[in-house]
Write a protein that binds this DNA or RNA. Structure first.
Length: 492
RNA sequence: GCGGGAAUAGCUCAGUGGUAGAGCGUCACGUUGCCAACGUGAAUGUCGCGGGUUCAAAUCCCGUUUCCCGCUCCA
């Protein structure tokens, strides 16, 4: 574990040194959980988003969208974020201690938990809550799990809290009502601050897609099944940020919502699940470090019928980089209800009107960035010297080709500059003439540049150059006239 | 949010009360002949920030911010 943390620290350090990621507002002491993408980082991020965009929208059945970050307040009431997207807290009125409701159980021992649950069972006997409690008992056999499930249940939680003694002072029945600490960032439309003009910074891009379902369908004349894709920033006022780019308060999502006939939901869910996993593998991510984590039925979010995470094994452990959910008709149903505008789709084939089911693929651009960066990082020994190399897939590499004169004289720089000018029309290239060529190669290794072109004496005689490949460090001689075609093929 | 650790040059770090340091990197000049070569020179620090103690603080004390770790949580 210690060793693995060191790896992450090295990557954070490299990321700063080479210009991938800087801490936000660093000269002012930094801002918790916010990071800036530097010259190489912005290229890598842009390439990731571009690959995603191509794979998602360069097809007949998916349309693009770029919705506003600020949306009507009612959107978040309909989505459930105003009510659910929060961590309820309670205070003990007696001793003023504060507890998060969902972690209250940690402060209470087994024996007492048993006592409280028994008391609760007697209390709800014969009421609606009894059914709910029985369901909890069916799903869980462990005491801790039962307690946790009760606490997470809106109604049962209230009943239980009235019975529980404060873990701090022992007083029973003195807890406040659970209060929500909403994780959405709030701001105001217009210069005057008042509750009337409160808006939220979107905590997910998905709702921008849902509320535009009819617009996009009408404008694009798409028929079900079809999807809407969007890349954009989202904001969550996380209690804790942690692990570099993994949990940040401002992050970027790459989401595609696929609208399907309800009866086909399982089919499309499975298709997208496979397709999304393959995307990471196709871009070179180590297959052994990727897995699915299926959500157990009782842990599903309020909107989901089926859900899985694509997880990557980071130095700190497995972490989600994408969520694939069957959101059912929950979102459109709710928007229909809250807006009063029909969200139904008339299906010509079956002559039926229905609210589509939605299969969501929601990838974290920032998290993918981190996963691709961590996965690319390699340290190796070359002739007794350590080499640090970022083995990015050529499509993701911030710089595609570096061009060097072997030495900075005898007509070599001029020849190299000509090559640079020519290749720059098609590729992101970098010219460097300073110092020994070996050092320049290693510098490019640290930036993840897949190819280096070097002009030498022979170039001036027969118009050929060496092309050095990053991972193998092997060199081939190529005629300058064939370079562009060579790279178009290699980098396509 | 709780508990633990850390913060000194771009990076890694040394410096336990008395002039701010090293290695690497960066830049310049010279040299160069394919994998972090060499020589000479240079730039870079309110020692995270704010208070306090002291004749004197990078060093001791208090607060705070940020990062890392363990819980917790999550896209």
């Amino acid at each position: 574990m210690n060793n693995q943390n060191t790896v992450l620290e090295k990557i954070v350090s490299l990321a700063k040194r080479k210009g991938f990621v800087f801490q936000s507002s660093e000269i002012y002491g930094g801002l918790n959980g916010c990071w800036d993408y530097g010259p190489l980082g912005v290229e890598l991020l842009k390439n990731i988003k571009e690959e995603w965009w191509k794979s998602m929208t360069y097809r007949e059945d998916i349309e693009g969208l770029d919705a506003s970050i600020l949306m009507h307040k009612r959107v978040w009431e309909a989505s459930g974020h105003v009510d659910n997207f929060s961590d309820p807290m309670i205070d003990c009125k007696q001793c003023k201690a504060r507890f998060r409701v969902d972690t209250l159980g940690d402060a209470i021992n087994e024996k007492k938990k048993g006592k409280f649950i028994k008391a609760l069972k007697e209390k709800v006997e014969g009421t609606d809550n009894n059914t709910a409690l029985e369901k909890v008992f069916d799903i869980y056999s462990e005491l801790d799990e039962r307690f946790e499930a009760i606490v997470e249940h809106e109604e049962l939680s209230k009943e239980l809290l009235a019975l529980v003694n404060c873990p701090n002072c022992g007083t029973a029945g003195e807890f406040t009502e659970p209060r929500s600490f909403n994780l959405m960032f709030k701001t105001f439309v217009g210069p005057v601050e008042s509750t009337d003009n409160t808006v939220f910074l979107r905590p997910e891009t998905a709702q921008g897609i849902f509320v535009n379902f009819s617009n996009v369908q009408g404008a694009s004349r798409q028929k079900l099944p079809f999807g809407i894709a969007q890349i954009g920033k989202a904001f969550r006022n996380e209690i804790n940020t942690r692990n570099f780019l993994f949990r940040t308060r401002e992050f970027e999502q790459m989401e595609m919502q696929y609208f399907v006939q309800p009866k086909d939901d399982k089919k499309h869910y499975d298709i997208w699940k496979d397709k999304r996993m393959q995307w990471y593998k196709d871009l070179g991510m180590t297959p052994d470090k990727l897995r699915f984590h299926d959500h157990p039925e009782d842990k599903l979010a309020h909107y989901a019928k089926e859900a899985t995470d694509v997880e990557y094994e980071f130095p700190f452990g497995w972490g989600e980089i994408e969520g694939i959910h069957n959101r059912t008709d929950f979102d459109l149903q709710r928007h229909e209800e809250f807006s009063g505008k029909s969200q139904k789709y008339f299906d010509d084939e079956i002559k039926e009107k229905y609210i589509p089911y939605i299969i969501e693929t929601s990838a974290g651009a920032s998290r993918s960035f981190m996963a691709f960066l961590v996965d690319a990082y390699h340290e190796e020994e070359v002739k007794g010297e350590q080499r640090v190399v970022l083995r990015f897939h050529p499509k993701l590499a911030p710089i595609k080709i570096a061009i060097f004169p072997l030495v900075n004289k005898d007509g070599m720089p001029e020849a190299a500059r000509n090559i640079e000018a020519d290749l720059r029309q098609n590729f992101r290239v970098f010219y460097d003439a300073k110092g020994a060529v070996g050092r320049r190669y290693r510098r490019q290794d640290e930036a993840g540049t897949p190819y280096c072109v070097t002009v030498d004496t022979q170039t001036l005689e027969d118009n050929t150059v060496t092309v050095r490949e990053r991972d193998s460090m092997e060199q081939v001689r190529i005629n300058i006239d064939e370079l562009k075609v060579y790279f178009l093929e290699k980098l396509a």
